[in-house]
């Protein structure tokens, strides 16, 4: 790693100030992606601003509209244990990485990084979640901008994610057997006003909504409804773990499994 200083503010206001002090300063969530990145010298911050000591952006609550509100510095293990109101989300969090990773990694860190194979982007997009930052609220539909890219500005900090709770939902992940990241993961959620299907791991553009499946499931929420749908392998990630065509096929398989699991 290159040398850097590390700061651990205890308030959001102090964290915002520290990040604003220089373009070379960078936020540190649980570090389960950023620390390996730093080890490979792929990042060179002047100051890392750790967000793990800020109590005001931790914890799980419910707002007046019944949405599940998760502080950005809440770990995957805490979501797995504490998001019982939204079981599909708790299950997703409880299957990220391994137990030690889940004790450090945070929902805000995962969404800010927007790894194209991460699980949380599928949950946020598939739930139509609201991503709250220190300056604004961003709808998940407007938030993701492709692989490792989001609309977050320099120094902007995610503080909370608000999840509308669906009638039923499930997430199915086909794990890449070495990394345990999603080779393809499909998040399906049925709301009173429609069905949302979000897919991670597959597209070169990062997480995306599969609108044809949403329309078909909206009138018939069963695996049969999407039996005849297929996606093209064009624009899908193609690597030694699987071709674009293989991933496109898996999207259909994992979406059907998610619909079946949601019941």
């Amino acid at each position: 790693m290159y040398a850097f200083d590390i700061e651990r503010p205890t308030t959001l206001a102090d964290a915002v100030k520290l990040l604003a002090a220089s373009d070379e300063n960078q936020a540190l969530g649980g570090g389960q992606t950023l620390i390996p990145t730093l080890k490979q010298r792929l990042a060179m911050p002047e100051v890392l601003v750790s967000l793990t000591a800020i109590d005001e952006i931790k914890g799980i609550s419910e707002d007046d509209e019944g949405r599940l509100c998760i502080g950005a510095a809440t770990t995957h293990a805490e979501v797995a244990a504490g998001a019982g109101k939204y079981p599909a989300l708790a299950a997703l969090a409880g299957n990220i990485g391994d137990p030690a990773v889940r004790n450090r990694g945070t929902i805000g860190g995962s969404l800010a990084n927007n790894d194209p194979s991460a699980c949380y982007p599928a949950a946020a997009l598939g739930s139509g979640a609201i991503i709250v930052t220190n300056t604004r609220e961003i709808a998940a539909d407007d938030y993701f901008e492709g692989m490792f890219a989001t609309v977050l500005d320099e120094g902007e900090i995610i503080t909370e994610v608000k999840f509308p709770v669906p009638e039923k939902a499930a997430y199915m992940k086909f794990e890449q057997p070495a990394s345990r990241f999603a080779l393809v993961g499909a998040f399906v959620a049925k709301y009173a006003d429609g069905v949302r299907v979000a897919v991670t791991g597959a597209s070169e553009e990062g997480v995306f909504r599969w609108s044809e499946a949403e329309a078909a499931l909206g009138s018939n929420f069963s695996p049969d409804a999407i039996e005849r749908l297929s996606l093209s392998g064009d624009g899908m990630i193609s690597d030694l773990h699987g071709s674009g065509e293989y991933r496109a096929h898996l999207v259909g398989v994992m979406t059907k499994r998610a619909v079946a699991a949601a019941g």
């Binding site: 651990r8 570090g31 620390i35 750790s50 137990p99 030690a100 450090r104």
Partner: peptide, 21 residues
């Protein structure tokens, strides 16, 4: 996982956490 220790009672990978934290 050879580096797993407990921090405040939770198992963590000590190679993926800064001492300052």
């Amino acid at each position: 996982g050879a580096c797993v220790v407990h921090v405040d009672g939770k198992a963590v990978k000590a190679c993926t956490m800064f001492a300052a934290e």
